[in-house]
């Protein structure tokens, strides 16, 4: 059966994914809006930067982060000057890595939703005298609700599945940086197939449930739109 480290890894993964998603939604709302409607020469570059984690192998991201956040790296030096604990081998380090790693999975669905809503509702609200922020909060946000929800689900699920980066910058510390994906890897490599099997099954069921929920949500959304 699952031991305490397995449960702790599972809980840690959920905690990390939850926090990552929360922060990502806050970052992604303005960013996605900017990407959807602003014309700028920088736009192609920013869009490419956001999409980069989709293409880059996690080992590349992990390697850069390990070096940059280490005592000789740029971020590491900054942390030392500010008196902050260095990020490698800490939960905060994993949080930063996850935010970068899952960024496109949250930004892109929200950007698509904003695109499909268009600027029209805002323009109409403006003619009725609504201030921009007021109109955005009370009209655009409710309209984008389902898009934001599916972005959150995707970001959460993707973070749960994170492995390569965690392996490189986490240090495999029980109760601190040992996530469920890493714990599965540990069990497999140590030839503990029974425990690896149980944890894997949990992840499989979880992923299937998450995706089913998302598709159900999309279906409902489409149906409401047509009605």
């Amino acid at each position: 059966m699952l031991n305490t480290e397995d449960w702790s890894a599972l809980w840690l993964s959920i905690e990390l994914a939850g926090l990552t998603t929360l922060i990502l939604i806050i970052i992604a709302l303005p960013l996605a809006w900017w990407l959807a409607f602003h014309q700028s020469r920088l736009k192609a570059l920013i869009a490419a930067l956001v999409a980069l984690p989709l293409i880059l192998p996690p080992s590349v991201i992990g390697f850069y982060l390990l070096v940059a956040m280490g005592p000789h790296g740029l971020i590491g030096k900054l942390c030392q000057t500010l008196g902050i604990e260095l990020f490698p081998f800490t939960f905060n380090g994993l949080l930063i890595a996850s935010i970068i790693y899952s960024l496109p999975f949250v930004v892109q669905p929200i950007q698509n939703t904003f695109n499909s809503i268009g600027k029209k509702p805002l323009e109409i609200a403006a003619t009725l005298g609504a201030k921009p922020l007021d109109a955005w909060l009370n009209i655009v946000l409710p309209l984008a609700k389902n898009g934001i929800l599916s972005a959150a689900v995707l970001g959460f699920a993707h973070t749960i599945g994170e492995f390569g980066i965690v392996l490189m910058i986490g240090g495999n510390i029980p109760h601190k940086t040992q996530l469920i994906s890493l714990q599965i890897y540990n069990h497999v490599e140590a030839f503990e197939y029974a425990q690896a099997g149980q944890l894997s099954l949990i992840l499989l069921i979880f992923s299937f449930a998450v995706l089913s929920f998302m598709y159900w949500l999309n279906q409902k959304f489409n149906y409401l739109n047509k009605a």
Partner: peptide, 15 residues
């Protein structure tokens, strides 16, 4: 570290 070279990297990089 996942193996001894990974462990070496952790130390060599000063992390």
């Amino acid at each position: 570290g996942d193996n001894i070279s990974n462990t070496y990297q952790y130390v060599a990089s000063g992390n």
